[in-house]
Design a protein around this nucleic acid. Structure first.
Lengths: 230, 230, 230, 230
DNA sequence: TATGAATGAGCTTTCATTCAT
DNA sequence: AATGAATGAAAGCTCATTCAT
């Protein structure tokens, strides 16, 4: 009987909350299934996590899982979908606009605030995100959910970038490319700090500051003639 | 009997070559097993690819797989290991030094040349790398192989960065952080162009140029007082 | 579909009863599995009896076996254990004391009564005992079960022997040696009549009488100066 | 690579010798196969000993086993047969007559000498005898070999017993019954000292003396009216 | 709502044995 | 005489899922 770490516990509470928001309050056994499914998927991956083990850890009969979830894949999707579609993405959109107004559109400040807040949100769902990353390549359902939501979440950001380029404060680049850079740096940090080398020793605030710094100004010092002429 | 695409064919040839370099020339059936294992793993993922299917596609008896590879996991490792340890990493090390000499140490130029060449190498092994990424979180063996090799490959790069910072041409940052940024941007591009949205429409050269550009100078234009003073 | 002989049928009923006493009433399919497992093990030996065959003979799916018994070896142990630990041994202890009281401790009479009753019990479980003998050398679990129970069963007998020796009616010998002789003669008869040359032509009562006779007085006639002096 | 104990080594040498006597000198690889087959069968039982393991331990290719022995069962029989038919049994016959002449037919003395010598012979082949015991119930071939030889070996003993009974020195009992008693006591001691509780602490000579004692005179002391009258 | 029982299809792996060299 | 390669058959066991209660 493995002890869930507090961090995971918190993540699970958030996931349960997200599901409850959609489906209404969860009966206790269903809730237990959700909790243990997240834990087990995160520990072993989707394929290696058997419904038998999930049932045992949740203290229910295996058949009970299938009362609540049509198939094992359905269980996965019902865990991941609400997180993606109701928590991660919409918050991003809404929050982006709010921050932009407050910060008067200074790109670096906006990025800094948004990324820090996003990092907080994502950290709460870390176990599920790990599963998400694992399973996306082979599950068209997941791809659909994710890619249909991402553009919406990006709308505000793309608009901001376009405005900055038009006003000459930002170099001209395809906005999706810039979005990819941001996502890469952000995701790279998240993966490094969560999956490859989890544990203490990471300072989220400092890392995001540095990340925004390099995005804004690069790693080289400014010197005459060194800047790109575009 | 699915037709392997030409790109995959090329990747497989490279993998077979890498294995042959270690184990000597492969008997034809063993070679067929290797080929079809790569294909099947890449298509379906490790867990969903059954040894029975691999055997059928390779035109051998299932037992033949286990004459050549002790277990299914051993098959995976023996596919991935030589790629990681004999092709990707050492080439990086050697090539880094060569380029640094040729380019007289101009960071942007070195990065540009190295990343382009790395991208070429990696593209040849794309199917396997996809598997690698999938399975790494759950396979300590793979982690060991990969993480024991990476530092060696990074040595040259870290030294270069240190030198640049000492000479005042590069902002002071922990070198591993910079390495992570490079890897993130590079990996993000590879994943985007390979896994999420494969197909034409990507211009590797242009993307690497842009990537090095943002790394060196950021996305913001230089303006008085805008550059960081530290 | 081989017809079980009546003798075996009776043995199986006894085994099923013994298991039911421990685990509660057996569901019909579980019962069928137990029955056919005993038959098949006895016919072919443990290794040569496949779970597939047992399942077919029991009219269940192979997987059903593994719902009720964790492994094939667990199936064997769960068949053998109750026989050893709940039927053979405790009966021996209890019955020994009862007989000793009734027979006023005359060694020959006690032995005769006890061995005859033991023979009856053992005959009921003959098929399982055959398996037991076969598998004991290679299954530490079985050894543990058996050897942990035997001393308890022997307690009464050892006490009786000690008393006889102290009172001068029995030659001094290490009691375990005498126990071994009894077990050897008894087991030798059982094996000969059951395994090597089964079938009619054996008269249990007469054989036990003769066996006790030789134990008590040897095969030689008493003549002057021939008896041992020690 | 387990170290064979010296005792086992000696047994193997005897077996190899017995086989050589029939088939001529063994080529080294065949000899290695024989040696490791005996060891492996003894350790794990016939079924659980795979030809692969035997080949590995013998340092030969698996196919080489089948050059020399048609099937795995043939290997077993070719190990056991010569031991039974050329060493154990004929020695018994010949030796019995020799001893009887020397001891002037005193039953106890003859038994003592013969059993001690038999014990010595049997100890040399202990590993094989264990296999023999295991496999006899399921291998008609083995049964044939053994049961066709035993009567020959028993001839001398049966004749002696008949003579003793006719002369009034031995109680009348069916000679096969007496033979069974002897075999039971002897076998019981061998099994106890070899299989169940191997190791030191056994004194073969003393045990055989005691065994012959109980056979001759029983465990009870002679007292007036206590001896059987029949 | 919950479950114990049951299962068909599938899994990876091992087996003794054959054959071309 | 010896073997590396190969294999069909079978092994024990696990899987997600169904169903009567």
């Amino acid at each position: 009987m493995p002890e869930p770490q507090p961090a995971v516990d918190e993540a699970i509470a958030a996931i349960v909350q997200a599901i409850s928001d959609i489906e209404g309050p969860l009966p206790p056994k269903k809730r237990a299934i959700v909790e243990q499914a997240v834990l087990t998927f995160a520990e072993k991956g989707f394929d290696a996590a058997s419904t038998k083990e999930i049932a045992q850890r949740a203290g229910v009969a295996e058949a009970t899982i299938f009362r609540h979830f049509a198939t094992k894949e359905d269980l996965l999707l019902r865990l991941v979908q609400p997180v993606v579609s109701r928590v991660v993405v919409p918050a991003a959109t809404e929050q982006f606009e709010r921050v932009m107004a407050a910060e008067k559109g200074r790109v670096e400040d906006v990025l800094r605030v948004v990324l820090k807040e996003r990092l907080g949100v994502i950290r709460r769902f870390a176990p599920l995100i790990r599963i998400l990353i694992q399973e996306i390549p082979f599950r068209p359902e997941l791809q659909k959910v994710l890619f249909s939501q991402i553009p919406a979440g990006l709308g505000g950001a793309l608009a901001m970038m376009q405005r900055e380029m038009d006003s000459g404060r930002m170099r001209r680049e395809p906005p999706t490319r810039i979005a990819r850079w941001i996502a890469s740096l952000f995701g790279g940090y998240f993966i490094a700090s969560t999956i490859f080398a989890p544990g203490p020793g990471w300072d989220d605030d400092a890392e995001v500051d540095a990340l925004v710094g390099v995005l804004a100004h690069g790693i080289l010092k400014v010197s005459d003639g060194d800047g790109p002429q575009a």
